[in-house]
Every structure is written in C-alpha cells, then in structure tokens.
Amino acid sequence: MELTSKTAVITGASSGIGTAFSQALIEKGVTVFGLARSSDKLEKIQQKLGDSFIPVTLDITNHDTIDQWVNKTFQQEYPDILINNAGLGRFGDVDALPLDDWEAMISTNLSGVFYMCRQIVPKMKKNPNGCHIINIASIAGKIGNPQLSGYNASKFGVRGFSEALFKELRYDGIKVTCFCPGSIATNFFNEANNSESHANMMQPGEVADVLINILETPSNFLINEITMRPLNPKHPDEQ
C-alpha cells in the first residue's frame, strides 16, 4: 500500500504503541483518527503531531457510539486502515479475579475489536483501493500462563477472530494482520501488575516500524500474523 494521503483509524491512540503508530503513519502522509476515552491525552497528542491527527473521544466497548461515529464520519470517503490497538490487562488467580476485571478485558480486548470491524468493514468494502486491518493481540494470545487466564482468553480470541477475518475478507481486497508482540516499554505493565517497564523491552517506535513495513507490502502479499519479542527480555539489572 502506498500510504500517502491514506486514512487510518487507530483505537487506544492516547498512549503507548497507539501513539507511536499515529506518529509513524502521519510521517508517511496518513490522516489519523485517533480514538481513546481521554480527551485531554488526545488533545496533547494533536498538539505534538499536528492537524493530521484527529482526536476522537470514544469508548470502543459501546457499539452504538461506534456505529454513530463511523456512519457520520465516513459518508463520502472511506477508511483505508483500521488498527485495533486498545487493550488492558488485569491479572490474578482465577478464583480471585474480580468479575469486573474479566468483563473489562473481554469488552475492551475482544468485543471492541469486533465492534470496530463490524462498522468499518462495510466502509472498506466500498473503498476502491486495497485496505488493511491490524489487530493487536499479544504473546499472551499464543501462550497461556498462571494468573493471566482472562487476558489470555481475550488475546487468544483476537487471534482466532483475526484468522477467520483474513480468510473472510481476502477476496474483498482487505488484508488482515494480527500482531503478537512480547513486552513493550509502555505503561501497560505499570497499570496491570505494578511491574515497571525497562530498557530491554521492545520500544514502541520499533513496533511502529514493523507496522509501516507490513502496511507497505505489495497488494497481493499478506503477512497475516507476526510475532515480535525482545531478544533479551530480562531487566538490565538482572544477572
């Protein structure tokens, strides 16, 4: 895909790799609709990235709100790229994990992806150019671990959904790629389980570089799933 003058929708754009994705795409000439729940954070990002970043305060767990925004925004022109990046992690033993934490992960990490695709895909089918959907899963979507049962379930779900979706949409000229990154130096770990990010984790900009490479592949070339890991994941202070 030639990225110049394309339009992208990115969920979870207010921090971490969502912000890095936005910056990388804008540097390529893409107009980015950045979706998140925090208006203040989105406005600060717009001040940094400029008018090509269009902030959209929206909760992706609310299907009706997504429906209204998509159909209002894309009446004449249609999106070229959708990046389902919004996600959260809540960790704990299965018999101690609060119900609210389970429901929040499933609603955001899995249902939110479905809600966005359900509304954006019909618009992409009207787009005469090739389109691309990127769904952000995780290493936790490939390997189960103790105290991650809810997070694992949501991210395994994203991988399965992405696998089915790429087979469903390939003949409509819509690519689907599932990202399965390992640890990235963002505030995700700080918020999820009080562990700190560190220099040996992957950097958001590095993951954004991979995004650009995948989006710029030739029209009949598809990478439907990619796994990314830090070579040495240990904290620099560890021996």
Results as ranks from 00 to 15, higher is better:
Thr4Met: 14
Ser5Trp: 04
Ser5Cys: 06
Ile10Ala: 15
Ile10Leu: 15
Ser15Cys: 14
Ile17Pro: 00
Gly18Arg: 06
Gln23Val: 13
Glu27Ile: 11
Glu27Pro: 13
Lys28Trp: 05
Val30Gln: 06
Thr31Trp: 09
Thr31Met: 14
Thr31Lys: 15
Val32Ala: 14
Arg37His: 08
Ser39Cys: 10
Leu42Arg: 08
Glu43Cys: 04
Gln47Ile: 02
Gln47Asn: 14
Ser52Asp: 09
Pro55Gln: 02
Val56Trp: 04
Thr61His: 03
Asn62Thr: 02
Gln68Ile: 13
Lys72Val: 01
Lys72Gln: 13
Phe74Cys: 07
Phe74Tyr: 10
Gln76Lys: 11
Glu77Leu: 05
Glu77Pro: 07
Asn84Ser: 06
Ala86Thr: 10
Gly87Pro: 08
Arg90Pro: 00
Arg90Ser: 09
Arg90Asp: 02
Gly92Thr: 05
Asp93His: 10
Val94Thr: 11
Asp95Ile: 08
Leu99Asp: 10
Ala104Cys: 07
Thr108Ile: 12
Gly112Val: 01
Phe114Arg: 01
Phe114Thr: 05
Arg118Trp: 11
Val121Asp: 13
Gly130Pro: 01
Cys131Gln: 07
Cys131Gly: 13
His132Tyr: 05
His132Asn: 05
Asn135Tyr: 06
Asn135Val: 01
Ile136His: 00
Ile136Val: 11
Ser138Met: 03
Gly141Pro: 04
Lys142Met: 10
Ile143Asp: 09
Ile143Ala: 04
Asn145Pro: 02
Asn145His: 10
Ala153Phe: 03
Phe156Asn: 06
Val158Thr: 02
Gly160Trp: 09
Phe161Cys: 11
Glu163Tyr: 10
Ala164His: 05
Lys167Val: 03
Leu169Glu: 06
Arg170Cys: 04
Tyr171Asp: 15
Asp172Leu: 05
Pro181Ala: 05
Ser183Tyr: 09
Asn187Met: 00
Asn187Ile: 02
Asn190His: 13
Glu191Phe: 11
Ala192His: 07
Ala192Ser: 15
Asn200Met: 10
Ala208Gly: 05
Asp209Phe: 00
Val210Pro: 01
Leu211Met: 10
Ile212Val: 15
Asn213Phe: 12
Ile214Ser: 05
Ile223Cys: 10
Asn224His: 12
Arg229Phe: 09
Lys234Asp: 08
